[in-house]
């Protein structure tokens, strides 16, 4: 697309919808920037792009972007997206969700979308808590940390989003952070290129809620924690096990070439059915 124009003139509903709702120091705007740059590399017609979300801070993103945009009910972005994609397979469907939206209330849709391998790029912004409602614990709140609903510390173990996505059948799984922005651009572009169900987990700070509840410092300090607390896969291989403790690994964990997307498979099924192939 016309890359010589500043991105905001091409992709943002800049005249209508700003300023945005996110807090100072929030990571979601950075993820939006990465999505814009990754989409720009794809040379897609903006009329073909559907950005779908659920409910929460991350899910407010669609209103700012000049695609077809669908802000749905809590947890259901992938179910709405599945309907839209199957009804019109020409649509390029991108789902953006927070950790609570994608893994708690929407967890069932996440694993079944992965199992079906529906052609949707799923971006999960993981800030370890429910920001919009005031910082309650989510399925990715680390054990022992404090939130509005874990005043004595989180007692439940969390989900590993990337392991969950791989186990459920996603064909592209990656993790990045909002500190490592250029890397994130590439991870998201890799997901967009995939004709199947792809998942990118993005670690992001929530200084207003999670950061304050756990005395993690200001937004800059939390960004530095992303820098210091994460390592690449190459670094992980080199580090002795005792030094890897507490570090989160970034990178592409799965990139399968052998799996056909749901709508492609469905089209073949229709051809077979019309040709008289039936179980009965």
């Amino acid at each position: 697309m016309a890359a010589h124009l500043p991105y905001e003139y091409i992709y943002l509903r800049y005249k209508k919808k700003f300023p945005h709702v996110w807090c100072p120091g929030c990571g979601i705007g950075i993820v939006m920037g990465s999505i814009i740059r990754a989409v720009d590399t794809m040379n897609w017609d903006m009329n073909d792009i559907l950005l779908v979300s659920g409910i929460g801070c991350t899910s407010r993103m669609p209103v700012y972007l000049d695609f077809n945009t669908l802000h749905t009910t809590h947890g259901r972005a992938l179910a709405f997206g599945t309907g839209a994609k199957l009804a019109n397979p020409a649509l390029k469907v991108i789902a953006v969700m927070g950790d609570g939206d994608a893994l708690a209330i929407g967890g069932n849709h996440l694993i079944h979308s992965a199992r079906r391998n529906i052609e949707i790029t799923t971006i999960i912004v993981n800030n370890n808590n429910y920001g919009m409602t005031g910082g309650q614990f989510s399925p990715t709140t680390p054990p022992g940390t404090f939130t509005a609903t874990t005043p004595y510390g989180m007692m439940e173990p969390g989900f590993d989003i990337c392991s969950l996505a791989q186990g459920a059948g996603a064909v592209y799984v990656a993790r990045g952070t909002v500190y490592h922005v250029m890397e994130l651009d590439k991870l998201i572009a890799g997901a967009l290129e995939k004709p199947g169900f792809s998942v990118v987990e993005v670690l992001a700070p929530c200084p207003t809620n999670f950061g304050r509840a756990n005395r993690l410092g200001d937004a800059v300090k939390m960004m530095e924690s992303l820098r210091d607390g994460t390592i690449t896969q190459v670094q992980a291989e080199k580090l002795p096990p005792e030094e890897r403790v507490g570090k989160t690994v970034r990178g592409v964990f799965l990139d399968r070439e052998d799996s056909e997307g749901y709508t492609a498979r469905y089209a073949r099924l229709c051809e077979q059915a019309a040709g008289g192939v039936s179980g009965k």
């Binding site: 179910a79 709405f80 309907g83 994609k85 079944h112």
Partner: peptide, 17 residues
Amino acid sequence: MEDEIASVSAIIGASLA
């Protein structure tokens, strides 16, 4: 779909598409 919540969500998405 995986449940009725997903079913109604999918048909709304499909109608919009």
